[in-house]
C-alpha cells in the first residue's frame, strides 16, 4: 500500500474536541481524490495536519515513502507538495506575472545564484504559459490584489502549479467563484492533471464539480472517514446521504 501519499491513523484534538479522529487513506500517483463532508467534519483540520500548519496529535503521513509528519509548510513545498487556500492568498502588490514567478523561483538554484540570475529567474516563459492557460493575459501586469475575487482565485491556483508539484491540495477551489468560471476551472484542472501528471486532493462542496473531477471521493463526518470509493458509489451511499441531510 505505498501510494504517493499514505496517511495512517491521524488524530488531532483540541482539548476535548476530536477534530480528526483516526483517519487513514492513500493517494496514488496521478490520482485526483475528492474530499467532501458537512461543515465541521474535519476536512480542513485534516488538510492542515498534512500540510504542517498544525501538528497532528498522533498518526503518520508518508510522502513517496518518506515520513513527513509535522514538517513545516516550507519543507513540504520544497519536497513537491503544493497547495491553494480557501481564503484568498496572493501577493497583493506584486503583478500577476510576478506572483507566478515568485511561486516557482525558490525551487531553482541556490539563494546565492538566484541573487545574480536574470530578474525573471528563468521562469518568464513558464509564467507566460500559465497566464495563457488560465486566460489571465489581460491582467498579467496588474497588481494581483487589485483583481476580482474569481481572478485572484485563479492566480492562487496557478501559483500552486508553477513548480509542477507531485501533489497539490486544493481547499475549496470553487468557493465564491461564478458558475461560468467553475466550468473553466474544471477543464483546467483536468488538463493540468493529464499534462503535468501530479496527484490532487480537492476539498469541495460543489458535488457536481467533485463528481466530474475526481476518480475517488472520500466523505468525512465527525472527524472520521464515513466512506471512500468511486464517486457514484459515494453519491448512492445511504450513510453519506444521512450525514448531509442530518446536518
Amino acid at each position: 500500500m505505498t501510494g504517493l501519499l499514505d496517511v495512517t491513523d491521524i488524530h488531532k484534538s483540541y482539548g476535548a474536541i476530536r477534530a480528526v479522529d483516526g483517519v487513514s487513506f492513500n493517494v496514488a500517483a496521478g490520482e485526483i481524490l475528492g474530499v467532501i463532508g458537512p461543515n465541521g467534519s474535519g476536512k480542513t483540520t485534516l488538510f492542515n495536519t498534512i500540510l504542517g500548519q498544525v501538528a497532528p496529535s498522533s498518526g503518520k503521513v508518508l510522502f513517496e515513502g518518506e515520513d513527513i509528519t509535522g514538517l513545516p509548510p516550507l519543507r513540504l513545498a520544497r519536497r513537491g507538495i503544493g497547495r491553494t487556500f480557501q481564503s484568498l492568498q496572493v501577493f497583493g502588490k506584486l503583478s500577476v506575472r510576478d506572483n507566478l514567478i515568485a511561486a516557482g523561483q525558490e525551487f531553482l538554484d541556490t539563494p546565492a545564484r538566484r541573487l545574480f540570475s536574470k530578474p525573471d529567474a528563468g521562469l518568464g516563459q513558464r509564467a507566460d504559459e500559465m497566464i495563457a492557460l488560465f486566460k489571465l493575459g489581460h491582467v498579467a501586469k496588474l497588481a494581483a490584489g487589485s483583481l476580482s475575487y474569481g481572478q485572484q482565485k485563479l492566480v492562487d491556483i496557478a501559483m500552486a502549479f508553477i513548480p509542477a508539484p507531485r501533489l497539490v491540495l486544493l481547499d475549496e477551489p470553487c468557493a465564491g467563484v461564478n458558475p461560468a468560471l467553475i466550468e473553466d476551472l474544471l477543464a483546467l484542472l483536468l488538463q493540468l492533471n493529464s499534462q503535468q501528471g501530479g496527484s490532487f486532493i480537492v476539498i469541495e462542496h460543489n458535488m457536481d464539480f467533485i463528481m466530474r473531477l475526481c476518480g475517488r471521493v472520500m466523505c468525512m463526518a465527525q472527524g472520521a472517514i464515513l466512506a471512500i470509493g468511486p464517486g457514484e458509489a459515494i453519491r448512492a451511499n445511504p450513510a453519506v446521504l444521512e450525514a448531509y441531510l442530518g446536518d
Binding site: G92, L94, A102
Partner: peptide, 21 residues
C-alpha cells in the same frame, strides 16, 4: 533580482510565501 520578489512576497503574505518554498 528574484530576491527583490521574495522580499515583496514576505511583506505581502508570509504564509503564502512559505507554501511556495
Amino acid at each position: 533580482s528574484p530576491w527583490g520578489r521574495a522580499f515583496a512576497a514576505l511583506r505581502d503574505n508570509p504564509i503564502r510565501a512559505e507554501s511556495v518554498g
